[in-house]
């Protein structure tokens, strides 16, 4: 297997040799059966997860949350509050696990870093002219360097959807490679495809492979700024891509659905998808994340319900 994997990895390096080889490879990926994909995602969503399994899933989901605030109105105070919440999501119950990370704009990284210092919670920063990604490469790279030098542990970049949709795959590839380089060894790179703007499942599969070939540590569905964000179907598709990529190259890549996941029930459905598609290796916050803000409160209310037997309410979790 290792020799096969390295041989395959070697074959994949040829793929990115030129624009035409890359295009040939991406267009040679098998087409997506949309009905089958959505049907599979829906059927996995019907699993019943109860009692101890539910308690495990809730704690796992809390530990996977990238607690996010990406508003024009973000203040240092709000970012500090978010940091405090990430470290102790439920101040009334210190057995609650911390979230994986807080996700902010680059200029808030230093504030966030200070707020979560010493807790193990990571600081993720969006960069590369988030959310549109419409800026020159130099500007995008400066954005990334800013975030990294301020101490970001993770960088969430957006791909150039315009170039991707125009078929200019090499440009997208080169950008991801350049951003990866700017991240250096200190920051993990998450690549956002904005699946809602890619129009087809085939494009999502191509983008996933393109991102992974270019060295993404994580592939992420969306920015949360468009109408269609993470859906079970597009996340399932990306999970299949990381599974196949590891089988071929031996390299494990993480997945982060973001936007639109608001309830515990939804989050558990995604965890079922992960377990059934990519496998247990991904059931860890090093390899799977939820980009969300309101999800955490629902997880906490469900956690309180399991602990006390009473339904909880929004008065008993923090407002953010």
């Amino acid at each position: 297997m290792p020799t096969n994997a390295s041989a395959a990895a070697h074959a994949l390096t040829d793929v990115t040799a030129s624009d035409s080889t890359l295009r040939r490879f991406l267009h040679g990926l098998p087409g997506v059966d949309a009905v089958g994909l959505e049907g599979r995602a829906a059927s996995l969503g019907t699993r019943s997860i109860k009692t101890t399994a539910k308690a495990y899933a809730i704690d796992l989901a809390i530990s996977m949350v990238d607690l996010t605030t990406l508003e024009g109105a973000d203040t240092p105070g709000k970012v500090r509050a978010l940091g405090a919440k990430a470290v102790h999501p439920d101040p009334t119950d210190r057995t609650t696990p911390a979230t994986a990370a807080v996700c902010v704009y680059p200029d808030m990284v230093a504030t966030a870093k200070e707020a979560v210092a010493g807790s193990g919670v990571k600081v993720a920063s969006v960069a590369t002219a988030f959310p549109a990604g419409r800026a020159a490469l130099g500007v995008k790279l400066a954005d990334v360097r800013d975030a990294v030098s301020a101490g970001a542990d993770e960088v969430d970049m957006v791909i150039d959807r315009g170039a991707f949709l125009a078929g200019n795959y090499m440009k997208v590839y080169d950008e991801i490679v350049a951003v990866k380089e700017a991240c250096g060894t200190s920051a993990r790179l998450k690549v956002i495809f904005e699946t809602g703007e890619l129009s087809t499942y085939d494009n999502i599969r191509r983008a996933s492979w393109l991102g992974m070939l270019a060295g993404a540590d994580f592939i992420k569905t969306s920015t949360g700024k468009v109408a269609v964000n993470a859906t079970p179907a597009n996340t399932l598709l990306m999970l299949e891509a990381v599974r196949d990529f590891r089988a071929q190259t031996g390299i494990q890549v993480g997945v982060k659905p973001a936007g639109g996941i608001r309830t515990t029930k939804d989050a558990i459905k995604f965890l079922v998808l992960v377990n059934e598609t990519a496998g247990e290796d991904w059931l860890d916050n090093h390899w799977f994340r939820f980009g969300a803000s309101s999800l955490l409160n629902d997880l906490l209310m469900q956690r309180q319900k399991l602990a006390t037997g009473r339904y909880s309410g929004p008065d008993y979790v923090t407002v953010d």
Binding site: Y311, G313, D315, Y316
Partner: peptide, 9 residues
């Protein structure tokens, strides 16, 4: 019973 115990009622 669950309504009486519900924290948001």
């Amino acid at each position: 019973t669950p309504l009486a115990a519900h924290q948001d009622v």
